[in-house]
């Protein structure tokens, strides 16, 4: 099964004097096992692209479709989108009801609902016995974020789309989101991630697609994209600290940059170095 975006474009306020282009001709295909991050400056069309890939917004030009899927399957039924600040959508009285909402809407039997809600809470590391009865509004920000993600994970759709899943979280809670993305990947779900957090991208995906003003301007491995100092500078994008350091040194002293790169690049995660070193 693949999400196929073929020359997808979107114009806001089409036909009106206020018309402006949100996306212009983006093509992208995501299949099982893929993990892709979309990065780019604010307003470059990242969220719009996710909404189109989730089948929630119809493109004005081009097409968004689900290929190699069974009959009757649609983007809407196979793709789960976790919006930016998903906890703002809470409206149920308890965490259980919140996470169960989508299953009940799909008329799934209550025994199955209980089983899947508990499994989903386990997956986001919220102990079911401690959380099912709580009001979602009394959880901490990190717990709320994970409960909101559980409400999507519970649907067990093959594609999980996340819009800025680490925004506003402390480093430890952010790590839990990172682990969660890893687990969902291992469970066979394809991941499409919008983020401004270069380390989150580096540690969770194999491919980064860079958007600028609604078009793809780069598409490659994290090492390729973060090693392209000119691109990052032009778009005002940030790389993980190790790449930032090497890129800055390249401008000053290429020999030092190469030496430093041999030490700091290719490490699986910067924080391993931190925890082994100082704390």
């Amino acid at each position: 099964m693949r999400i196929v975006l073929d020359s997808v474009g979107l114009t806001y306020d089409r036909g009106l004097p206020t018309a402006r282009s949100g996306l212009g001709g983006v093509s992208l295909s995501i299949g099982a096992g893929d993990a892709v991050a979309i990065m780019g400056p604010t307003g470059s069309g990242k969220t719009t692209l996710l909404e189109i890939a989730a089948g929630l917004v119809a493109p004005t030009t081009g097409s968004a479709s689900l290929d190699e899927a069974e009959d009757g399957a649609s983007l809407k039924s196979r793709v789960g989108l976790v919006y930016q600040f998903p906890e703002l959508q809470f409206f149920e009285e308890t965490v259980f009801d919140e996470v169960a909402y989508g299953l009940r809407a799909a008329r799934i039997g209550e025994d199955e609902v209980v089983r899947r809600v508990h499994a989903a809470l386990d997956r986001v590391r919220l102990k079911p016995s401690s959380f099912v009865e709580r009001s979602p509004l009394t959880l901490s920000a990190g717990e709320q974020r994970r409960a909101a993600i559980a409400a999507l994970v519970v649907l067990e759709r093959p594609f999980l789309l996340l819009d800025e899943p680490s925004a506003g979280l402390d480093p430890r809670t952010r790590d839990r989101i990172l682990e969660l993305i890893h687990r969902e990947r291992e469970a066979g779900r394809a991941i499409l991630l919008v983020t401004h957090d270069p380390e989150l991208a580096e540690e969770t995906v194999d491919r980064i697609v860079v958007l600028s003003s609604g078009s793809i301007v780069a598409d490659g491995s994290p090492a390729d994209v973060f090693g392209d100092a000119g691109l990052l500078e032009r778009l005002g994008l940030e790389a993980p600290p190790a790449h930032e350091l090497v890129n800055a040194l390249s401008r000053r002293d290429p020999a030092v940059a190469r030496d430093v790169a041999s030490v700091v690049l290719g490490r699986p995660a910067l924080r391993d170095g931190v925890s082994n070193d100082r704390f």
């Binding site: 600290p241 924080r271 170095g273 082994n276």
Partner: peptide, 24 residues
């Protein structure tokens, strides 16, 4: 105690540590 409170040091500190460990 910053680490115990979930606060990471600035990335430059970690990179400097890795480079020192590697003999720079």
């Amino acid at each position: 105690g910053a680490d115990g409170w979930g606060l990471r040091p600035p990335p430059a500190m970690g990179l400097a540590g890795a480079l020192r460990t590697a003999g720079r």
